[in-house]
Design a protein around this nucleic acid. Structure first.
Lengths: 214, 214, 214, 214
DNA sequence: GGGTAACCGAGACGGTACGTCGAGTCTTTCT
DNA sequence: AGAAAGACTCGACGTACCGTCTCGGTTACCC
């Protein structure tokens, strides 16, 4: 049996209301401009209640962002049978998602929150990236099982490259972001078909995988 | 142009002392925990002097980080003639650099500084990533000129993927980071030789770009 | 021990336990530093129980102080037939009582409680001072009836002066308090025998009261 | 020469503005309802500035009250040659002063401040009472020098009795305060002419003073 | 070589947010 | 129904940091 026999239980509904209020403010004003008082006011809650649930502002905002983020995006990699098209669709969906001011604000707030509490910033980023990572890895796994791609690939490494590309785009936020499609096509072209000319394997061909017979 | 006719000139040496003090504190405590007062105290300087040189905390920290970063790393892509080996060397150098807590802290601080002043965060990131970006693009360009790789590639897209991978690693800082080599080999294997089986181009291969004739 | 169905049996006992806990804390920390939570914790009682019995902190502390005070002192004015000696004894008893840090702390707490709830501060002070006031007035009344003192005196005014002297001593707490005896003797000397020289009534002697024929 | 070579000096004018704002709020709302924020707002000052000058609320309010009090009342004992009339005038002036809501509020605030910081509450009361004390003692001294009163009196004890009477009146604040005159007359009658009948000295006549020849 | 203009250290200042705490109320479960 | 436990609102507390300003005092340039 659990502890906590007596006493009024915490209001579970408040948890959500606080997170929603927090993410609204984060989107509207950015991490630094969100104060605990403003969150408390918007959520109709006292600061004490905030601090009962989170030790400080950073983890509260982090949870709010993760919560809002998870609510808005699943972004499972589609599965039409055409891997290139599926990955392209997935990348474009993300690019579009991040092009939305609201969503970009959330991500930036998470970065700020992570910077403010260096202790757990790894965990924060991981929570953000792992779902996507797993989605890509799973899709590649199925492609491999279907013989669509070579069997000796490091799926995690490829997923990291794709996610890293997206991450770099959020942070740098270049104006050329608008035509994300051609950039992604360039990457996918390289990745799918390889950089080296078709019949000419790169020198010192990759030790860890069973080299092909060329 | 005749600026500053009269008056005592700024002490150029102070500039460096301040930047060094700032980067020390950033490494030790993280961006959020570094206060202007603490920088002033450690540098033996008044706050006024700080604000005479930088408009606010974020650009000061950014310059300090860039300064410290530039002092420690050049990381030009080597050129042995073996592209795979060269990129592998370059990736590992960076991974090793970022595995040092001090350096990772600097990068994280820069990201935090950028998040704190969204105005110029693009410029900040670009200052950090562009040198590396250009290095990779130049190396790919020379490889293309030498016929070492296919001529129709989007070098910028590939560079972004590599840099993005590294960026993701700093932020997420997974424990598996220790054996970066195998992950990089996986990525390079995919990138160099292509994901799809050797003789079987992916379906719908590269529509938007002038597809080659294979 | 048979108790009622619902649960008021501890009623009376709890009351005392709370008051004792309160007065302990008041003595140890002073009025402002005593929190309802600390009282509840020390008394092993919930805050709700406190508020079931008193409307707020001030009256609770007031009752605790009055309770502790009444338990420690009666201080009836003695009646040996010698008024000066009796008043002197009474004054010294009080001075000694108030020289005890504990007791002085109680009085100060009561004053603080009264200041905190100006509504009923009169009642508070009166509860504290009236018993003493009545004691002095009664003693003076009997002295008057016995012809020991002049019949035309304002006993209440004299009592106020004596009590006021004591009150001033608690609050000011001068180091010279140690030899209270001589100060009291000085006051009693003036009060008993008069300030003006024996045979020379003060000018404008006592206009408002029916002056005697001297 | 004093220390504090460098640095911007404290703005001396702020000191007064803060004290004035504080006493205004104290009069309007009472001690407990005055917050540091409200004082800062009314004085047009930051909280930091308040805490630079006073360690906490209590001494700040105390100084403000003492300041306002000293500004409003001198209450030197008049000197017409008629001691009884002079003391009567002085007592009535004080009673009238304390009957004013504003002034009573100040005194009560001082009491509350003293209760909140038990450390220096003695000093607080002393600052309040000493000027008055000295005034009465001085007046009595001159009366003694003029042969107006007996030479063997403890002037301090008498002053304490008068001030104590006033203090008791502030605290108890009885409705009968309105006709303070008759109460004071009663006290003065007793004090001036003595309690015991003219020709009949009290038994056990006061040891410490040179007893008269009865 | 005396002015003057900008520098420098020190630190007060306004503003704003932080995280804590106390008073008093309310809601649960247990007895 | 009364009691313990403890969550809840409200609002003040005292601290910290940012960026500005004001001191006394120090250089450098320029006339």
């Amino acid at each position: 049996m659990p502890q906590a026999r007596g006493g009024r239980p915490r209001d579970a509904q408040l948890h959500d209301e606080i997170l929603v209020a927090t993410s609204k403010l984060v989107v509207a004003r950015g991490y630094a401009e969100v104060s605990m008082d403003s969150v408390a006011a918007l959520a109709g809650v006292s600061k004490k209640t905030l601090y009962r649930r989170w030790p400080s502002k950073a983890p509260m905002v982090a949870e709010a962002v993760l919560n809002a983020y998870g609510r808005r995006s699943t972004f499972e990699v589609p599965e039409t049978g055409d891997l290139r098209a599926d990955l392209r669709t997935w990348l474009l969906e993300h690019a579009e998602f991040l092009a939305d001011t609201t969503n970009a604000a959330l991500i930036r707030a998470l970065i700020a929150a992570a910077a403010a509490s260096p202790m757990d910033n790894e965990a924060l980023y991981r929570q953000l990236s792992i779902p996507q990572h797993q989605g890509v890895v799973a899709r590649l796994g199925r492609a491999a099982a279907a013989g669509e791609i070579r069997p000796d690939l490091d799926h995690a490494g490829i997923a990291d490259a794709l996610i890293g590309t997206l991450l770099l785009r959020v942070l740098v936020a270049e104006p050329r972001n608008l035509n994300a499609a051609t950039e992604f096509d360039g990457l996918l072209n390289a990745l799918l078909n390889g950089i080296v000319p078709a019949g000419q394997p790169a020198r010192g061909s990759g030790p860890p995988h069973p080299g092909p017979h060329w």
